[in-house]
Measured scan of single mutants.
Amino acid sequence: TLEEDLKKLQLSEFFDIFEKEKVDKEALALCTDRDLQEIGIPLGPRKKILNYFSTRKNS
């Protein structure tokens, strides 16, 4: 689940933002850096999230 993935990244504090915006794993895989910025995710966590999901998509 998205919540489990965020826990792996030690970013579970952002789960509420994704839940509020109705972003699940499938939607997050389609998000850009700009999308994450617009919903209030800071730069460092955005980079970690985007890297994590891009490596999952390619495997």
Rank of each mutant, 00 (worst) to 15 (best):
K57L: 07
K25D: 10
R46A: 15
N58K: 07
R56N: 06
K48R: 12
F53H: 06
I41Y: 01
D16Q: 13
L11D: 01
I39A: 07
L6I: 00
L36H: 04
L11T: 00
I39R: 11
N51W: 04
D16L: 05
V23R: 05
K25R: 10
F14M: 11
L36G: 05
S59P: 10
A29W: 04
K22P: 00
F14R: 01
K7W: 02
P45I: 11
L6H: 01
D5R: 02
G40R: 03
E19D: 13
L28N: 03
E4S: 05
P42N: 04
T55L: 09
K57T: 08
L50Y: 05
T1E: 10
D16N: 10
F14L: 11
E19R: 11
T1Q: 02
K7E: 11
K47S: 14
K48M: 13
I41E: 08
N51M: 12
K25V: 11
D16F: 11
E21T: 14
I41R: 05
F18R: 01
G44M: 12
F18Y: 05
L30H: 14
C31K: 15
L2A: 01
V23M: 15
D16V: 09
L43C: 15
N51Q: 13
G40S: 04
D24I: 00
S54R: 08
E26C: 13
R46F: 01
T55P: 09
D24L: 00
K47N: 14
Q10D: 12
D5F: 11
D16G: 09
E21P: 06
P42S: 02
E21M: 15
F53I: 09
C31P: 07
I41Q: 08
I39S: 04
F18V: 03
Q37W: 04
D33Q: 03
L6T: 02
I39F: 15
L28F: 05
G44V: 14
E26H: 13
I41W: 01
R34V: 12
C31I: 12
K22V: 03
L11F: 00
L36P: 03
N51V: 01
L28H: 06
R34F: 13
A27G: 14
D16P: 08
K22W: 01
S12W: 08
L11A: 00
L2C: 01
A27L: 10
F53E: 14
K48F: 03
F14D: 02
T55S: 11
E4N: 04
K20R: 07
V23N: 03
V23G: 03
L43T: 15
C31D: 08
Q37S: 07
Q37T: 08
E38R: 14
L50P: 03
S54E: 10
K48S: 09
I49S: 10
S12P: 05
Y52K: 05
K57E: 11
L6Q: 04
F15V: 09
T1H: 01
L50F: 11
C31M: 15
D5C: 10
T1M: 03
P42C: 00
K20T: 09
D16T: 11
E21L: 15
S54W: 03
E3Q: 06
E38Q: 08
I39W: 15
F14P: 02
R56P: 12
G40P: 04
I41G: 05
L36D: 02
K25S: 09
C31L: 15
F15S: 12
I49V: 07
S12K: 10
K22T: 08
S59E: 12
K20Y: 05
S59N: 02
I39H: 04
I49D: 08
T32M: 05
N51R: 12
G44N: 12
F15N: 12
D24F: 10
L6F: 13
S54Y: 03
L11G: 00
N58H: 04
L36V: 02
G44R: 10
F53N: 09
L2F: 06
E13M: 08
F14Y: 02
N58V: 11
F18G: 01
I49H: 10
K25T: 05
D16I: 08
S59D: 14
D5E: 13
E21H: 13
F53G: 07
T32R: 06
K22N: 14
Q10E: 13
D33W: 02
S59G: 08
K48A: 13
G44E: 15
N58E: 12
G44A: 14
E13L: 02
S59V: 08
S59C: 10
K20P: 02
K7T: 07
N51T: 13
L30M: 15
K7F: 10
D16E: 12
R34E: 15
L11Y: 00
L28M: 10
Y52G: 04
F14C: 06
A27R: 15
I41P: 03
D5V: 04
E3V: 03
S12D: 12
L30T: 15
G40T: 01
G44L: 13
L2M: 12
F53A: 06
I41L: 12
N58G: 09
K48P: 02
F53Q: 08
F18M: 06
L43Q: 15
E38Y: 02
E21Q: 13
L30Y: 13
R46W: 00
D33H: 06
K22M: 09
T32E: 12
P45A: 15
I49E: 10
E4T: 02
D35F: 05
G40K: 01
F15T: 13
Q10P: 00
E19M: 11
I49T: 05
D16A: 11
C31E: 04
D24Y: 01
A27P: 04
P42G: 02
K47L: 09
S54G: 08
F53C: 10
R34A: 14
L36W: 04
K22F: 11
A29H: 12
F18H: 02
F14G: 01
E13F: 00
L36M: 08
R56L: 09
V23C: 03
K47E: 15
L2K: 03
D16C: 09
R34G: 14
T32A: 06
K47W: 04
Y52R: 06
F14Q: 07
E19K: 09
Q10V: 01
L6W: 03
S12C: 07
I39D: 05
K47R: 10
D24N: 13
K47H: 04
